Simulated assay, not measured.
Amino acid sequence: MKILYSTAFFLTLLLVGCSATKETNFLVGTYADTSSQGINVIKFNEKTKDISLQSVVAGIANPSFVITNKSKTIVLAVEETAGDNGGKVTSYSYTKSSKSFEKLTSFFTKGNHPCTVAFSPNEDYVLVGNYSGGNLSVFSIDKAGNLSDNNQLIQYVGKSVNTERQEKPHVHCIVFHPKESKIAVADLGTDAIELIPFDKNSTPFLKENETISTKVAAGSGPRHLVWNKAGNHLYVTYELTNEVAVFDYKDNKLTQIETIALTAPTKTGSAAEIRLSKDEKYLYASVRGNDNQIVVLKINEGRKLEVVQTIKTAKTPRNFIITTNQKNVLVATQGSNLISVFDRNEETGLLIATTKELTINKPVYLFGF
């Protein structure tokens, strides 16, 4: 009996150990140089930190931003291109059992270089931000993933002080408020964050005439946004000045309470992505250009920021993502054609570079799949 018990105990430990090794898939948005390139599907092993390419969805032009619906059955990608009718937004169905993608619909966005896309909370609308077009497109989408031609287009006007980068509006990010029926839109070109209410039961979806615009410091260039879970703080990267800003949100109003530098002062900076840890104790921001780094910021009392680490990356870190278990960060470096793995200390927030990496052509976005 003792031998049988020991054997059973050993097998139980073995099974538990195997089940604890989780593999996570990610979609990788890229700039495609050939027709054989496109959306990449990669696999990450949380135990070994190995990262590998699983498949490529080819035949799509510059799918720089790619997301899924909640059930992972529909994939959306922008095609960051330009033309008479703008770039495109394209939908796919995904079948998990066969790991297969089927292209469904593709529509012009009526704005050049779409660079961000989001599902509405009920997943019956798709919102696309067009960087060079300086506008916001809204499309209907059915349960199967079929898009309908855009039923709303919001065009922004204006400019700001940086004559090279802010000669016109540049929509760069769309995020839904976690509690209220509104979206926040970052306009790098006009130094503004737009808060737009929406009504899920009405057409048009967005209440454009009820927009509240918050101006930020001239020449800062708001790029990416992230809300905390309570929805009372908004964190923003300022691309042109390499800064992170903190906003309080209350009674439909954004109030900037702090700005903290990510690098030495600059007017041509290139701050990019911003991510918030699950416990909301740490912020992470990427900086490209001359710096090529991730900056780790501790959040004190939910508001005050403190830089606790600056760590070098490969060339041109665009987007990055914190893994589900919060123990690693995957960094997409466009200029080095790499996705690199960093270890993350959950208590201190600090990162350590590893030797694990994967070659991908011009990776610029990561989405958990």
Results as ranks from 00 to 15, higher is better:
2 K>F: 07
3 I>Y: 15
3 I>P: 00
14 L>D: 00
15 L>F: 14
17 G>F: 11
21 T>F: 10
26 F>R: 05
31 Y>C: 04
34 T>K: 14
36 S>L: 08
42 I>K: 11
44 F>K: 11
46 E>Y: 10
56 V>F: 01
56 V>L: 01
58 A>K: 13
59 G>D: 12
59 G>V: 07
62 N>S: 05
66 V>Q: 10
69 N>W: 13
69 N>A: 06
80 E>W: 04
82 A>F: 10
87 G>K: 13
87 G>S: 10
94 Y>S: 06
96 K>S: 13
97 S>K: 13
98 S>I: 08
98 S>K: 14
102 E>M: 11
104 L>E: 02
109 T>S: 13
109 T>Q: 05
110 K>D: 13
113 H>W: 00
117 V>I: 15
118 A>L: 03
123 E>L: 08
123 E>F: 08
126 V>H: 10
145 G>D: 05
147 L>M: 12
154 I>A: 03
154 I>H: 03
156 Y>H: 13
163 T>E: 15
163 T>P: 00
163 T>V: 14
165 R>M: 09
175 V>Q: 06
178 P>H: 01
184 A>E: 05
186 A>E: 02
187 D>Q: 08
190 T>P: 00
190 T>G: 00
196 I>C: 04
197 P>A: 07
197 P>W: 03
200 K>D: 12
206 L>G: 02
206 L>C: 02
210 E>L: 15
210 E>A: 12
211 T>L: 04
211 T>H: 04
212 I>K: 15
218 A>S: 14
222 P>N: 10
224 H>A: 09
227 W>Y: 13
229 K>A: 11
231 G>N: 05
234 L>W: 10
235 Y>I: 05
242 N>Q: 08
244 V>G: 05
247 F>K: 04
250 K>D: 07
252 N>L: 13
253 K>P: 00
266 T>Q: 05
276 L>R: 05
277 S>M: 02
277 S>I: 03
278 K>L: 01
280 E>T: 04
283 L>E: 05
283 L>V: 02
285 A>F: 09
287 V>T: 14
290 N>F: 06
293 Q>A: 15
295 V>D: 07
301 E>K: 15
306 E>N: 03
307 V>G: 00
309 Q>V: 10
311 I>D: 03
314 A>M: 09
317 P>H: 09
317 P>S: 11
320 F>E: 01
325 N>A: 05
330 L>G: 04
330 L>K: 10
334 Q>P: 01
338 L>P: 00
340 S>A: 11
340 S>W: 03
344 R>L: 14
348 T>M: 09
362 K>N: 08
